[in-house]
């Protein structure tokens, strides 16, 4: 465990060094959030009755999404890992006394966390200051906030576990670039990165809620804005746990199998 911690620390420190990048990233996320909210304002003006949740809840959803973007974003993959697989250098990694899947998992977690650590607070802070209905609302109770944090951590883990699949699949594809673009855009959309899931047609939504996509970012955002009943929340947490276990277990097995292939073929 200690060695994974040091991988984590190394990557986390690296992430912290980029101050300008963090400021730029924050401003970017803030601008995206603002634009998103303006779109919804226009739709709200057109037909408030068609909104699946209150406008305040929508604004909160969007701000949280922007603040914690680095936790879920599909495009934040590690280029070094792809290079390592494509160039065949992964064979050298096999010489180290660590499990590659775990190492990459720690690495992905660290780089995502270091990004979020720098960016989320200023975004949330400014969003809190924005005038009502455009800003983020405070959670209704401490208990609700606690549940939000739990689901946030779970969705972080599910996301990382899901994106680990992209690395593993890279072993089997001729075009990691094509694979990345495709998977990233589909996952981004299905997990509510483009249009928030509550705005999807109901039938589509019901299907997506059972797939890992909703577990990746929709759940904590909705828990925070209080648009989920207790029943629904319990069910969602259970699903998050289930997907986490399934994704990690399968991903690890697939990774081992791919690595065995590499060592047989010699890269």
């Amino acid at each position: 465990m200690k060695k994974y911690m040091s991988f984590f620390r190394m990557r986390f420190q690296m992430g912290l060094q980029y101050r300008t990048a963090a400021i730029a990233g924050m401003t970017t996320q803030f601008a995206w959030g603002l634009m998103e909210i303006m779109v919804f304002r226009a739709f709200y003006a057109a037909d408030p009755a068609a909104f699946p949740m209150t406008f305040e809840a929508t604004a909160s959803y969007i701000w949280l999404q922007q603040a914690f973007l680095a936790i879920f974003a599909a495009w934040l993959l590690e280029p070094e890992i792809f290079d390592c697989i494509v160039s065949g250098n992964v064979a050298y990694e096999l010489c180290r006394p660590v499990h590659i899947y775990d190492m990459w998992f720690a690495r992905s977690m660290a780089s995502r966390l270091s990004r979020v650590a720098l960016r989320c607070f200023p975004i949330l802070f400014v969003a809190l200051l924005l005038p009502k209905p455009y800003g983020i609302s405070t959670p209704s109770s401490a208990a609700q906030f606690a549940v939000f944090l739990i689901t946030l951590v779970l969705s972080f883990l599910v996301s990382v576990a899901f994106y680990m699949w992209i690395y593993v699949l890279t072993f089997y594809t001729i075009s990691p670039m094509g694979l990345r673009i495709m998977v990233a855009s589909v996952v981004e959309f299905l997990s509510g990165g483009g249009v928030p899931l509550p705005f999807f047609p109901e039938k589509v939504q019901r299907v997506l809620e059972f797939l890992p996509f909703a577990s990746m970012q929709n759940v904590p955002l909705r828990v925070y804005s209080g648009s989920m009943s207790q029943m629904q929340t319990q069910q969602a947490v259970a699903l998050q746990l289930l997907w986490l276990i399934v994704l990690v277990a399968l991903g690890r097995t697939m990774c081992d199998r791919a690595l065995r292939r590499v060592s047989v073929q010699g890269g």
């Binding site: 594809t173 670039m177 094509g178 990345r180 855009s185």
Partner: peptide, 8 residues
Amino acid sequence: SFFLQITG
């Protein structure tokens, strides 16, 4: 790779 990227 080219066609996969186009599809992407």
